[in-house]
Design a protein around this nucleic acid. Structure first.
Length: 260
DNA sequence: CCTATCTCCTGTAGGC
DNA sequence: TGCCTACAGGAGATAG
């Protein structure tokens, strides 16, 4: 469930704490992640220095002074912790000054050392707007929600923020993507930007079923502003419904009155 | 190329 | 109270 705002919050904490530090050692347990690192992804890690930590969509990018990158993805239960982190630690790094970074992940959907896949525009950048979204949805008959969750359409949106953005723009999640007008796309793109920006400001969402905490152990506060996700009644005061079938495998809540 | 479905995994919630 | 099952979801793989 870490989506763009949660990953960005983690990025900021990692960048602040690790920037400039050399990597002294790392440990990848035998039974670590569902998907092992790409061949060679961890070569030359020891001795290299962290220049900065970036982000693309939901991917963290550790830039090293060797010119190489180490990519991390939190999957759905992944969490980065400073210090040691218990039995579900899938990857651990010790940097100079005895700084320890642990990647904790109960469900093992996360990854370390993967390649960056093809990703759509960053939703908070100018390249993503109503016109770009309209073009991306042209000729697509999949449900609009399924395409918002497709990282090749727009990078970083997951179930929570897609659900919220569709509610705020008054669009049903099951609508065929190519049925959205240019005006629908303007409202939807604007809602995505507004919601993600607010969630970044609030340090992401810490919901009951996610237990997300940033590397310093701090919770996020966007859940206090959630209008649909995980609720029975929407912020509009109406009873929410779930789509008959999940969309792209995700539960999809919406307001049958406010969303068309 | 596009779409829908299955899969990985385990903590938690709900039912009886 | 306690066990058991269903469910949650990011993204890659696969079938049609």
């Amino acid at each position: 469930v870490p989506e763009l705002p949660e990953v960005e919050t983690v990025r900021r904490a990692l960048d602040a704490r690790l920037k400039g530090l050399a990597i002294e050692s790392f440990h990848l347990p035998k039974r670590a992640f569902n998907r092992p690192p790409v061949k060679g992804a961890l070569d030359g890690l020891i001795g290299s220095r962290v220049e900065s930590v970036g982000r693309r969509g939901k991917y963290l990018i550790m830039r090293l002074d060797t010119g190489k990158h180490l990519i991390l993805h939190l999957g759905m239960s992944g969490r980065i912790v400073f210090g040691t982190a218990g039995p579900h630690t899938r990857f651990q790094m010790t940097l100079e000054g005895a700084v320890v970074m642990s990647f904790h992940d109960a469900r093992r959907f996360g990854t370390v050392g993967c390649d960056l896949p093809e990703l759509g525009p960053e939703p908070l950048e100018d390249a993503f707007n109503g016109e770009a979204l309209f073009q991306a949805l042209r000729g697509r008959k999949a449900p609009v929600k399924a395409l918002l969750l497709d990282q090749a359409v727009v990078a970083g949106v997951g179930n929570i923020y897609a659900t919220e953005a569709l509610f705020e723009s008054g669009i049903r999640p099951a609508r065929r993507a190519d049925s959205l007008s240019r005006q629908d796309c303007d409202r939807l793109a604007a809602a995505i930007k507004r919601i993600l920006a607010q969630a970044v400001e609030l340090g992401g969402s810490t919901l009951e079923d996610t237990a997300y905490l940033d590397p310093n152990g701090d919770a996020g506060y966007f859940q206090l502003h959630v209008k649909v996700y995980g609720r029975k009644t929407g912020a509009c005061g109406h009873a929410l419904k779930a789509t008959k079938k999940p969309l792209a495998g995700r539960t999809s809540l919406y307001c049958p009155i406010c969303q068309k």
